[in-house]
Write a protein that binds this DNA or RNA. Structure first.
Length: 932
RNA sequence: GGGCUUGUAGCUCAGUUGGUUAGAGCGCACCCCUGAUAAGGGUGAGGUCACAAGUUCGAAUCUUGUCAGGCCCA
């Protein structure tokens, strides 16, 4: 007789295959999702439910996605899928950031390769095409990773209506009085007369005139220096042409400065010695060096004090009769010069911000050709480079020049024409931060920052950020909708005018700003409200791309751009990399506060960066990155997602081939557990009920797991989710429960109460497990769910992702809390571990390899708490054929009983029966089941 | 150089307010099973908790410094 055929072995056809073959499986599941418009159906299934709004931070569309983008998107997808299964409606409008320099440069490069010089409009069209191409590619890639969303109507910052939305956000800022025009230094090419971006600059060896210039003391409120004779400070600079723009001298607040008395010095012509006695304030650490450079022979340090003491002191500009105030700056170094830094807010980034801090003006001393203007006084009309002699000679005349030398250093050149550039003050549009700063800081406190350190970070950023310069002198962006009187150059900042422009852009895109004339963009017959002019010119600057993305919360959630995007404002959650404290969190906050006086988010979760297996940053140069789509096609998107779930995203997330391989092992453990559970459910009756203690226990365990895991999802702790699920599959199921029920699942009669109880419990557990893993393993969960449905384990539904987590009620949790099973089985698990370890030692000497060939004897004390289990049950739990109670300690012996041919167990009730003429040892249960 | 941050077994991570012998999964070694089988099970080896000093009866945990990463600035 073929005993094997009388068993109820797992049915490989009734469950998912062991080998997932995810790279093939996932695309086929994806096709099903696409066909039934999964995102929409899920949203429909939650109509009327409370909304959970995650606002997508847009990836930049100049390349395919990289592993960091994938990490971010997958984390967001975990949030959305898990919130859906908690019962929320979870609208998700994915977005793309389209404007900006990197795209422009990529496109410019293509033109350059073809030796074409595009017009602004040609360039813009090419940029748009380039961005569109990568929107499409990235969309495909995100979908491949299993991310659900409104992919057919994402927001794109270059979408005509979105561009109009950006313009309208600008309008609201204007209305609120937040926008002003000011000056700011930019890298400027005098030869091509344009502003340049940092990335258009190369550094070349360059010879400059380095000069030491002294500034006489002017006012000294604390009488710190007045007791000395002929007091000056000395600055060093390599740009003589910026001297006319000098407004301050910077000291380091913490470093020590020396008051040096110098007797005699080389005279103005550096030839003869003079007998002048002068006192100089310079950095203490540089006194020797300066003395050597300036040829001091007789000098003495009289006093030292930290730079901070010089607060409030003013020196005099060496040429003009005006003060050069002392300012404190921490970028002062001990490397070159005197430790006192010449500060011209028009001609350096540091200088500018320091100037802002001290309320200094930004004189426009150099025009677009590089020629000094009337604001440079007597130097008006001088080409900046000629200042090397003109200004230097004048300094000599006024006896302020202490030294002049050629100086070799690296200096910024324009990449385009390989000619030097200068920092020059140019007119720019700004959003004023100061009036909002206090409210922004208050709003930050109201937001839930996860992890909490994020709050420190954004607080510091907002506290110290200067006004936001929103002008960019670039072609690829949304034009700033401002007109100037053609003659007066007085700007028109008018809401009606901006709205008029917005309507045009809505229909024609922001190209219209570049295509149409000013007259064609203004309302008919428009008259300058301030000057009465009727001729106008357009602003040529575009908005900073951070303005585009900062406007996203308003453009998307308010539903003015597309009504189907409308959701409550502020969003419930922003979830981005920690670099966005400076970026998107900041720009969104400014625009949110500026337009609605409210932060655009209730909570902000941040994640770290992806590193390689050694924790090093990923760089193109090292080639240590992992391509997310390649990884998905090799290991499976579910494995990549499981990697995301298993790292602690609050820190940096290491990834490598080896790491993904080990994640693959965890995946297989979960998958096989699902597979085995489902494989045992063949023929499960619709009214299957749990009746046995062990089965009740495992259901309780499953409920505890659900409560735990849902809580972890709610805290965005996906690592805890993964650990809990993995441990449960391994420790509770594979190592114990599934092993313990095998005997009855295989050997009992198909319709026996014991077997059906096991099936009922397995189904209960499976249903919970598959829903819990669905957010992280969407493909595998869907595959399993649909198989469950086709096997009649669950009712057929369109997707597991529309299901709810099977959360236990409070009553159920209380019942489990009080359940004696929890105590009994905890005792049992401790006992199985103890017995297994002892058996391992015993079997070596006994020549027995398998617990099935042995009997274990347990002292009565060891049975404490386990009295409710029969001997046969105990034996199965302990993985032995038989158990005896008695003796002083745990002991083993070779089993004296016959081995049942069917159940493979050696038990006292095994006896030999004759079947078809053959002698077969069978246990009482097995004889009963097969009816012999 | 500054702000924020990280460093616990080969790898990924836990480690509650300082309190027994620092845990888990993966990997590794040995063994079992061959009725979850390109699966499953058992046992075990692996850690000066980056390093150094300090506070404390007691430190992975608190303080300071050093080293090495990461993000953002300069």
């Amino acid at each position: 007789m073929d005993l094997r055929s009388t068993l109820n072995l797992p049915d490989a056809n009734a469950t998912i295959p062991m080998k997932a073959n995810l790279p093939i499986l996932e695309p086929s599941i994806f096709v099903g999702w696409e066909e039934q418009q999964i995102y929409h159906r899920i949203q429909q299934s939650r109509l009327g439910a409370e909304a959970f709004v995650l606002l997508d931070g847009p990836p930049y569309t100049n390349s395919p996605i990289h592993i960091g983008t994938a990490l971010n998107k997958i984390l967001k997808d975990f949030v959305l899928k898990s919130r859906t299964m908690m019962g929320y409606r979870t609208p998700y409008v994915p977005g793309f950031d389209n404007h900006g320099l990197p795209i422009e440069q990529a496109v410019a490069k293509k033109f350059a390769e073809k030796k074409i010089t595009p017009t602004v409009l040609e360039l813009r069209k090419a940029c748009r095409a380039h961005a569109a191409e990568y929107c499409e590619i990235q969309t495909k890639q995100f979908k491949r990773l299993g991310v659900f969303g409104l992919w057919e109507k994402p927001y794109q910052t270059m979408d005509y209506r979105f561009e109009a939305g950006i313009v309208r956000v600008f309008k609201r800022l204007v209305a609120g009085g937040h926008v002003y025009k000011g000056l700011r230094p930019t890298l400027w090419s005098p030869t091509s007369r344009t502003a340049l971006a940092e990335s258009e600059i190369v550094y070349r060896d360059h010879v400059s005139k380095a000069i030491y210039v002294r500034f006489p003391l002017r006012t000294d409120p604390d009488q710190l220096l007045t007791k000395f004779q002929n007091v000056h400070t000395i600055i060093w600079t390599t740009t003589p042409w910026t001297i006319p723009a000098n407004l301050a001298v910077a000291f380091h607040p913490e470093m020590d400065y020396a008051v040096v008395r110098v007797n005699g010095r080389p005279g103005p012509a550096f030839a003869e010695e003079t007998d002048e006695t002068a006192t100089y304030v310079i950095l203490d650490a540089l006194v020797e060096k300066v003395a050597t450079t300036l040829g001091w022979k007789n000098f003495e340090v009289l006093e030292q004090f930290p730079g901070l003491n010089l607060t409030g002191v003013e020196f005099s500009h060496p040429i003009f009769d005006r003060p050069s105030i002392s300012v404190m700056a921490d970028y002062v170094t001990t490397e070159d010069g005197t430790g006192v830094v010449h500060t011209a807010p028009s001609h350096g980034r540091d200088d500018f911000y320091t100037g802002q801090k001290y309320g200094l003006p930004v004189p426009n001393t150099v025009d677009e050709r590089g020629v000094l203007t009337h604001e440079a006084g007597e130097f008006e009309g001088t080409f900046y480079k000629n200042c090397d002699t003109v200004v230097v000679n004048r300094l000599l005349e006024v006896d302020a020049l202490l030294s002049v030398k050629d100086f070799h250093h690296s200096y910024p050149y324009a990449e385009r024409d390989e000619l030097p550039v200068i920092f020059r003050a140019t007119e720019q549009w700004f959003v004023a931060i100061d009036p909002m700063r206090h409210d922004m800081l208050t709003a930050i406190e109201e937001v839930n920052w996860v992890p909490p350190q994020g709050q420190n970070r954004i607080d510091a950023m907002v506290r110290h950020r200067p006004d936001w310069c929103i002008s960019r002198q670039r072609p690829w962006g949304v034009g700033i909708p401002v007109f100037y009187g053609a003659k007066s150059r007085v700007p028109v900042l008018d809401e009606t005018v901006i709205e008029h422009v917005a309507r045009i852009i809505e229909a024609e895109g922001s190209d219209a700003w570049f295509e149409r004339s000013a007259a064609d963009l203004l309302p008919a017959g428009f008259i300058h409200p301030a000057t009465g002019e009727t001729e106008f010119e357009k602003e040529t600057d575009v908005l900073d791309v951070w303005f585009d993305s900062g406007a996203v919360s308003l453009c998307v959630l308010e539903g003015e751009v597309y009504p189907e995007w409308k959701e409550h404002y502020p969003a419930d959650l922003f979830f981005e990399g920690s670099d966005q404290h400076r970026g998107w969190f900041n720009s969104s906050l400014v625009l949110g506060m500026g337009c609605r006086a409210v932060a655009p988010y209730k909570a902000v979760v941040t994640h770290g960066f992806v590193t390689d297996g050694e924790g090093r940053k990923i760089s193109k140069r090292l080639g240590n990155g992992v391509d997310p789509v390649v990884a998905a096609d090799q290991y499976g998107a579910d494995v990549l997602r499981l990697w995301v779930a298993s790292v602690n995203y609050e820190n940096d997330a290491p990834v490598s081939d080896a790491i993904l391989k080990s994640v693959g092992e965890v995946y297989r453990n979960v998958r096989n557990t699902l597979r085995f559970l489902l494989g045992n459910l063949g023929g499960i009756p619709a009214d299957a009920a749990v009746t046995l203690e062990l089965d009740h226990w495992v259901c309780e365990q499953a409920d505890l797991l659900v409560a735990d895991v849902v809580d972890a999802y709610a805290r965005y702790d996906f690592g805890a989710v993964t650990t809990a699920v993995n441990q449960f599959c391994l420790n509770q199921l594979s190592k114990f429960y599934l092993d313990a029920i095998k005997d009855r699942m295989y050997c009992e009669a198909q319709e026996s109460a014991e077997r059906i109880s096991g099936q009922a419990a397995s189904a209960y557990v499976l249903e919970r497990l598959v829903t819990l893993v669905a957010p992280i393993l969407p493909f595998t969960a869907e595959e399993t769910w649909q198989k469950m449905a086709s096997e009649g384990v669950v009712p057929a539904t369109f997707s597991v992702h529309a299901e709810l987590f099977r959360q236990p009620s409070e009553e159920r949790m209380a019942e489990i809390e009080a359940s004696p099973r929890q105590v009994h089985f905890a005792a049992l698990r401790a006992l199985t571990d103890e017995v297994a370890a002892l058996f391992e030692k015993w079997k070596v000497g006994a020549g027995i390899k398998n617990g099935e060939d042995a009997v274990v004897r347990l002292p009565e004390v060891k049975q404490a708490g386990l009295e409710s289990f029969s001997i046969a049950e105990l034996a199965l739990f302990l993985r032995f054929s038989w158990v005896e109670i008695g003796g002083e300690e745990i002991a083993f012996e070779s089993s004296p009983y016959l081995r049942c041919e069917r159940s493979r167990l050696r038990r006292p009730d095994v006896s030999v029966v004759v079947i078809d003429g053959a002698e077969v040892p069978l246990s009482a249960r097995d004889r009963r089941v097969i009816g012999v």
